[in-house]
Amino acid sequence: MRLPAPCGPLSEGVVETLRARPAGPHAVPEPRAMGDVTYPLTDRDFQLALWILYELHYRGFEDVEDPGAEWDPLLMVSRAALERTFEHAVRRLVGEASQDAPALADLGDTPAAQVTAALVRMTARSGPSEVAQFLHRRATREEFRAYLAERAVYHLRESDPQSFVLPRIGGAAKVALAELQYDEYGGGRPDRLHQALFARALASLDLPTDLAPYVERATGATLASVNLMSLFALNRRLRGAAMGHLAAFEATSSLPCERILRGARRLDLPEAVQDYYDEHVEADAVHEQLAIRGICAALVEDEPDLAPDVVLGATACLAVDGLAGEVLLDGWHGRRDARAAG
């Protein structure tokens, strides 16, 4: 993949730095530009800059010549500055979202019971998302394609962030995470790798299967929902939040996937599209139990101090993904309104 086109001062700073030939320390993005970010969770330039820096830890960019860019000290400083602003915004959003949430201590006798109850409670309230209902009942073929294109930024890297957490946790939680990831990574069958299933779904709709074009078009909120997983997974101190995020993600996936599958059938979309969502109805019903009971409960049994972080991660997942969903719906409704008016 090549570096995506920047879209503002922060992503320009990062891209310019990475394009420069390896020669000593790189410049960091202008701290002044950070002051211009009013709402980082939807700011495309901000999220793109952070996404590019995170991508250095995944598959990287073919046009970045410096093989040491991943751990370049000044790029790390740059990433940390962006992360601080991002994490602050996430914590604020979580604070707003959890005003009515009961105290953990009131939910059970042990940290494991408290966390299990909190995760079940917060994910039980969410039915199939509005996005899933729209895809089920209303979306046109073009809108469905646009949805896949928007989600490609995540699904082409599906489950990769959480793999960074494996060496950071131990015991039963590690075993359960490995079990979940084994399923995500195809259960021993390369043709069932979930990332590959999604790529096949894209190809069946004549959409590209490389990530670059999607990154260049994804909204700031979609990039934020992906960056959130990297923020949690690449910072060991946030491992509890990474696993809480995973639990909330998996627990709110089966029912929407079933709706999206029905939408794909309604539109008679290719088998590969149906296959992707079909696989996720059953898989995520399993993963939900593994993530809540196998991973999160075991993790806080091992490390009780992580209980609030697990809940933080789960709340952040629902809030930030909810934000990305709203942006997507606004876009669809806006275009429909414009067509009706025009």
Partner: peptide, 14 residues
């Protein structure tokens, strides 16, 4: 809807 497998319908209260 996918017996014998769970499809998370136990969550769907509607």
């Amino acid at each position: 809807d996918r017996m014998p497998w769970c499809d998370d319908s136990h969550r769907d209260r509607r």
